[in-house]
Design a protein around this nucleic acid. Structure first.
Length: 338
DNA sequence: AAAAAGGCCAACCGCGTCCCG
DNA sequence: GCGGGACGCGGTTGGCCTTTT
């Protein structure tokens, strides 16, 4: 999975598999001279191959740390999880599978997983269930009904980048949703309980923290485990006096000053969770409407696109909450509930 | 048994980025 | 700042192997 150097792209070379003799030459050359410069390898190794072909062969096949053979179910799950987040970034996905190459991952995806997704009626890009216009319309109706008959508790909007334009959109858009639902039996709540310092609390209604762990361990395949803040005391300790903080997904809560591009007079508190930027504004509480729910604030949330799983959020909110007016066809880079 | 079709995977392609002079 | 070489990456495809007809 490597490009070709100018030298060999000039003249179309017939595709040719590497022979054991060529492999041997390449291995011996690299053992002798190291991996300093690929451009010198063909000559040093006595190979009639271009530098990039040698590099490709080494990286994708001859490297001693490579694991050959079929993918395990664990590896498959990692690929699916990471792909849901980063898309067709095979090199990025392969980084989570140290002994696999991007080429292997890509081939595996195209050969097995993609086809399985199609057979299961899942969108191979977003991993969502592909639904018909009729289904979408049904969801829209459900959304409208819920808005009419239920007391709204959260105002949530999402955007991939905290640009001025997106912030404007965030401010202007407001979707009333009965709750912030995830595709698990848990509910993630974010609250402001203090007039001066927002106290950010992640609660799990009626669920054990281990369930919450499994929820966030969605990120574990990314090489990290999410921090769990399940009580107001622990979460407040993770915030500095301004109420700004970082929750490190590795489990340590660390502080960071606000870098949020707030406009003058904007009273909202800025809280950063890893790559995600969450704006929280205070609002009148309407407690106990939903039992133990502590969500009684407006939440404006904007998320940097870099590592955040918008597709996951989309499928989550669409398939589980099922109460939002949401257009599947909308560009995920401009995701918003309106 | 043989030809055709389909699947898989290594190799190739084109483009973007980085780095250095 | 610019140009060129080297490298990295995602997409594509040729060729081999297996399965189907």
């Amino acid at each position: 999975m490597d490009g070709h150097h100018l030298c060999c792209s000039k003249h179309k070379v017939k595709r040719r598999l590497w022979s054991p003799e060529e492999d041997e030459k390449l291995i011996r050359c690299l053992a002798t001279h190291g991996h300093g410069s690929w451009s010198s390898v063909p000559k040093l190794a006595g190979l009639h191959r271009c530098a990039r072909s040698c590099r490709s062969r080494w990286l994708n096949y001859l490297r001693p740390d490579l694991k050959r053979g079929s993918f395990t179910s664990e590896e498959e799950q990692i690929i699916i999880d990471v792909h849901r987040i980063v898309g067709n970034k095979w090199a990025q996905i392969a980084k989570h599978l140290p002994s696999r190459t991007d080429n292997e991952v890509k081939n595996f995806w195209n050969s097995y997983i993609k086809k399985r997704f199609i057979s299961q009626g899942l969108d191979r890009n977003t991993h969502n269930i592909i639904c018909s216009d009729h289904q979408k319309a049904s969801r829209k109706v459900a959304c409208n009904i819920s808005h009419t008959h239920q007391q709204p508790i959260s105002v949530l909007s999402l955007n991939s980048q905290t640009t001025d334009a997106s912030m404007e959109m965030i401010k202007n858009s407001s979707v009333k949703v009965p709750n912030f639902q995830f595709p698990f039996p848990q509910t993630l709540d974010i609250t402001t309980t203090d007039d001066q310092t927002p106290n950010v609390v992640w609660t799990v209604k009626g669920q054990s923290s281990s369930d919450f762990t499994s929820f966030f361990s969605h990120g574990s395949s990314l090489g990290s485990t999410a921090n769990i803040i399940s009580s107001s005391s622990s979460s407040s300790s993770s915030l500095n006096q301004d109420g700004f903080g970082i929750i490190n997904p590795c489990g340590e809560a660390t502080l960071k000053s606000s870098e949020a591009p707030r406009s003058e007079g904007d009273q909202r508190q800025y809280w950063r969770y890893d790559q995600k930027t969450i704006w929280i504004s205070k609002m009148e509480t309407d407690d106990d409407q939903f039992g133990e729910a502590k969500v009684n604030q407006n939440i404006d949330a904007s998320f940097d696109a870099a590592n955040f799983d918008l597709g996951f959020m989309e499928s989550t909110l669409l398939s589980e909450a099922g109460l939002m007016d949401f257009d599947l066809a909308s560009d995920m880079n401009d995701l918003a509930w309106n």
